[in-house]
């Protein structure tokens, strides 16, 4: 049985194409390539680095926020292959070959994404810290066609805690943002 076990490595490169044999990487730094907001980034991370910390500390994309680091608040929400996830509970090395969208990738230049514009207009935030995650969850829920009413929006947005208590305005922003996205 152990004949198929590859040699252990302390460092290595994780290619985006399927490898010829599964290689064991780490615990030292691993060279990986991540596609974030349409750009390819080469970076060197230990396997234990979360996607969230890779984005913030390595790529300096600090729009994605760390609120709890435990999957309990949603401040770290990003889109991976268009689905909203909590980037604190996944590893950067697990996302080679994925399409990652962070809040920085939503606007085109100075032109706000319609959902961003709706959040500004409806005052769908106060301190703004949970806002990148709220906006990305809202975009995902609209794109996935889950806009079946206010209750559905409230349910679908429940993975993003807003401690300032802006939910009433977030609801209005999501409704309006969905119209603008249509």
């Amino acid at each position: 049985m152990d004949s198929a076990i590859p040699e252990l490595a302390t460092a290595g490169t994780l290619p985006s194409a399927a490898p010829a044999a599964a290689s064991i990487l780490g615990p030292g730094e691993v060279q990986i390539e991540l596609e974030v907001n349409g750009e390819r980034h080469e970076l060197s991370v230990e396997p234990r680095v979360t996607l969230l910390d890779a984005l913030r500390e390595r790529l300096k994309l600090t729009g994605t926020k760390k609120g709890c680091d435990q999957g309990t608040c949603g401040a770290c929400t990003v889109l991976v292959n268009d689905r909203a996830i909590d980037s604190c509970l996944t590893l950067a090395v697990m996302h080679v070959g994925d399409r990652i969208t962070t809040i920085e990738g939503l606007a085109s230049g100075e032109q706000l994404h319609p959902m961003q514009a709706a959040f500004v207009e409806h005052d769908g935030f106060q301190c703004g810290y949970c806002t990148p995650g709220q906006v990305l969850s809202a975009v995902a829920l609209v794109r996935e066609g889950r806009m079946t009413g206010d209750d559905a929006i409230r349910e679908q947005m429940s993975g993003n805690i807003c401690r300032c208590g802006a939910y009433e305005n977030i609801l209005a922003a999501v409704r309006d943002g969905a119209r603008r996205m249509a």
Binding site: A4, A18, A22, I24, L25, G26, P27, V30, P47, L91
Partner: peptide, 13 residues
């Protein structure tokens, strides 16, 4: 704690 990581290609692996 530091750990190693591998992507398996099939269940047996």
């Amino acid at each position: 704690k530091p750990f190693r990581y591998a992507r398996a290609r099939d269940p047996q692996e």
